[in-house]
């Protein structure tokens, strides 16, 4: 019975911690949908995949969301036709590379400033590399969930094809050209409808747009909130089934400590805004590299966010995302542990 109580407490705490950030993310996503002209946004983003991924990693400075809030925003970015490396870079780095988290980390690790700097730097590097890897895939359909794929296709593919047809004319990238394509409106799909709503949004009066903002926020919150509840339940269950002590007993060595802290990061699903204080409690016994691994890998992946991620990507894409992020984190922090500190 006490196990059940523990699980329930953990479940509630995860949910209470994550829900405000999810709400913030959903609100930002709705604002992006209705108030930002995506075509202008896209033309301003760099076309170079590596540069795009780096820029995407730094969007977190504009949208300070943690790992629960970044999923709806990343989803919206993808649906609006933002290049893949930008969206992936954002998805992985935004929970770390944002002012709130940087400040929190600085507060916790004031006497180990290198942890703060390396956390930001390595998160940027890893997100950029993974974003760049995903840029090789021009056709995202096999990776995305069907609903997102359709929206992505609507926004993205025609432009690509048109670009191929007349690659020299920059005028073709302007938004009005696409809006005048009536043939695109045949599919009566909810997501596509949403996207088309967005496309026509600039013409609507403000009151209408605000109503749409509320509608869309509620709809997304219902959809993703349910996923979050489910994800939190799984995370709580695993934490009770596999207690922290078991994970921590993996070892304190330069190599084993990293593995232990990475698994711990994935399992505890702690929000990136507060995880540095959690990590601080381990600084007495664990190596700097393993603390960094916790702080870098935790925001990129955690159990409760996997459900949210599954609302965007097919499992294969998520496996690639996490495998690459995990390997890169392990490599960098291992190097730090064995060769530097």
């Amino acid at each position: 019975m006490s196990q059940f109580n523990n699980a329930f407490t953990l479940f509630l705490s995860l949910l209470v911690e994550a829900m405000p950030f999810l709400l913030l993310g959903v609100l930002l996503s709705s604002v992006l949908l209705l108030f930002i002209d995506e075509q202008q946004l896209i033309t301003k983003l760099p076309k170079n995949p590596l540069l795009g991924a780096l820029v995407g990693s730094m969007i977190g400075f504009l949208f300070p969301v943690c790992e629960c809030g970044n999923v709806p925003v990343a989803r919206r970015l993808l649906m609006q036709g933002v290049p893949t490396p930008v969206a992936i870079g954002f998805l992985l780095a935004a929970p770390t590379v944002n002012p709130i988290v940087i400040w929190a980390t600085w507060t916790a690790f004031r006497d180990q400033p290198e942890i703060v700097v390396l956390r930001i730097l390595l998160s940027l590097v890893i997100a950029t590399i993974v974003g760049w890897v995903f840029s090789v895939q021009k056709d995202l359909k096999p990776l995305l969930q069907p609903a997102i794929a359709k929206s992505w296709e609507y926004n993205f593919v025609p432009k690509q094809e048109l670009k191929k047809a007349t690659p020299t004319s920059p005028l073709l990238q302007s938004g009005t050209f696409l809006l005048n394509q009536p043939g695109q409106m045949v599919r009566m799909d909810a997501t596509v409808l949403q996207a088309s709503l967005a496309a026509t949004a600039p013409n609507k009066p403000l009151s209408d747009r605000l109503r749409l903002l509320v509608d869309n926020t509620i709809q997304e919150l219902r959809e993703l909130g349910a996923v979050l509840v489910f994800g939190s339940a799984i995370a709580a269950f695993i934490q009770v089934a596999v207690p922290r002590e078991v994970i921590l007993s993996l070892g304190y060595g330069p190599v084993t400590s990293i593995i232990a802290m990475m698994i711990l990061a994935a399992v505890v699903s702690i929000c990136s805004t507060v995880d540095s204080f959690f990590a601080l409690s381990f600084s007495a016994t664990f190596t700097s590299g393993s603390l960094l691994a916790f702080l870098i890998f935790g925001p990129m992946i955690d159990l409760k966010a996997i459900g949210l991620m599954l609302s965007i990507f097919k499992p294969k894409a998520i496996i690639y995302l996490f495998a690459l992020a995990a390997q890169l984190t392990f490599l960098f922090t291992l190097f730090i542990n064995l060769q530097i500190i």
């Binding site: 890897v133 995903f134 090789v136 056709d139 096999p142 690639y320 495998a323």
Partner: peptide
């Protein structure tokens, strides 16, 4: 064997 598979 999507391009992504190969690179990843």
């Amino acid at each position: 064997l999507q391009p992504l598979d190969r690179v990843a």
